[in-house]
Design a protein around this nucleic acid. Sequence first.
DNA 1: TGCGGCGATACCGTGCGGGTATGGAAAGAC
DNA 2: GTCTTTCCATACCCGCACGGTATCGCCGCA
Lengths: 285, 285
Amino acid sequence: MERLEVRELVYFTAVAEELHFGRAAARLEMTQPPLSRAIQQLERRLGVALLERGSRRVALTEAGAVLLRESRTVLDAASAAARRTRRASRADPRLVLVIKPGGDGGLLPAILDAYQAEPGALPVELVCSFGEREILLREGRADAALLHRPHPDLTGLDTQDLLAETQLLVVPSSHRLAGRTRVCLNDLAGETLPRWPGAPGGGSHGPEVHDLGQLLHLIALRRMVAVLPSSIRDQLRDDLVAVPVDDAEPTTLVLAWPEHATSPALAAFVRAAAAVAGEATGHGG
Amino acid sequence: MERLEVRELVYFTAVAEELHFGRAAARLEMTQPPLSRAIQQLERRLGVALLERGSRRVALTEAGAVLLRESRTVLDAASAAARRTRRASRADPRLVLVIKPGGDGGLLPAILDAYQAEPGALPVELVCSFGEREILLREGRADAALLHRPHPDLTGLDTQDLLAETQLLVVPSSHRLAGRTRVCLNDLAGETLPRWPGAPGGGSHGPEVHDLGQLLHLIALRRMVAVLPSSIRDQLRDDLVAVPVDDAEPTTLVLAWPEHATSPALAAFVRAAAAVAGEATGHGG
DNA sequence: TGCGGCGATACCGTGCGGGTATGGAAAGAC
DNA sequence: GTCTTTCCATACCCGCACGGTATCGCCGCA
């Protein structure tokens, strides 16, 4: 069985994405002829036609589309491998946890305390990021992340549910819905909703928002409204009001980490988080 | 960022598994010096020590252990990529479904019929295999598999539940438990249970069993007993008896396929299977 | 102190990955 | 129709990196 090399996959994805040998070569900072030959050789070794060369356009074959998708997973795995290896060799081991600012459901302090009490606990480094936080896990840049389900893509990750939350509509005090005791999603017709960086802008084409302070500021300025998990209630400014949304699907705060992870530090962290979450839901409701 | 090459990962896994450069080189069908240099270069490029060379033994460092695990996933992904690409280019497209003989819960004929009625259905090729059936999915050798949950490792696979089944103890008619109307797991103390190839022989160190006929034969010969999903009831020989096991965790027949799969033929098959399963549980209970 | 095992080093050849120059086919422009 | 442009393939060349052989150096051991 012929072996597939990373270099070939990099070349192929470039061509498959550009559908143009010249541009792909430029992107790869090389010239076009060796690129053409590399792709030909790849096709010969696989015994498969990957591209249809029309004299004026290049198109993917069925098999080429499959290889494009597969290549991405291989390349992602390869760069994650490099990053995780490097991180494992650091002199100051630490657990990198990526969160959305304000998106911890109020559980984080208790979780961190519980974790530090575990034997062999590492210092925890918090990384704040909006949108695409799971990417950091897949890329091997972080050990764990706090996400909200339903979430676009949790495949390849293991998860632990922490907290089920209802959702609140956040509006300025002067907003037409501010006085309501409850609203439903239909009431939001015509409102501008924020667009998270990286999220496929499904319908809501409001401005991109990069952190919670910015978002609340924009809401106060009447530029938009937002539907957020109920735990942000503590962090609202005085000039904003939160109203329960009846028919918004409830959201679950989950702790996620790359599957196959074996680090005992991570395992301890997951244990700690699960314990804290169990207490919270068991006692407090 | 330096790129990690497949060749290097192959070399490294060989050394990491053998913990011996000479043997690793032999396994790779090359000589020892270039292998040593390749590993050194890998370490230099990563900036990480992967191996501790004692003059008489080689050991993995912490980072080396991480890279070994990561390498396996990269290499698996790479060979799966090659196989899936080749399969996608076949002139006679077909859907490869891997099953455990007798493990289809009786649903398979209906599923196949429903699938063939879907638009764009492909011929279905059935592959029978005991143990490690999910490996065939990960390797890109099959499109879908029928498995039973709880299952050792479903990560990296998407699944669709098909049928919840209670478990039955299968024994010869002359067995001491054959007359019971129900048993519990404690009753099985001292009995020999089959060991599936590939499964970590957890406690039960009986003989390895490779197909259902063989298993039933061995049970009839009083060499072992087995706990199996209730749908095998139809396939029992006259000289065997099935007794419900009260406290065995119920098992779920699931259809599994590689995550990120995009083939419309597979999607149609999943739809068909889900429809049949819905009917079965909806009407029949 | 000689021996054997094993990884590292020195040195060498060749094949492959990359470059430049050019060919050749197809799609407009007129 | 033919001239031009565009873009992929081919021809040919070069340097290096990969793999091989020979050997060293270190250490455990008898």
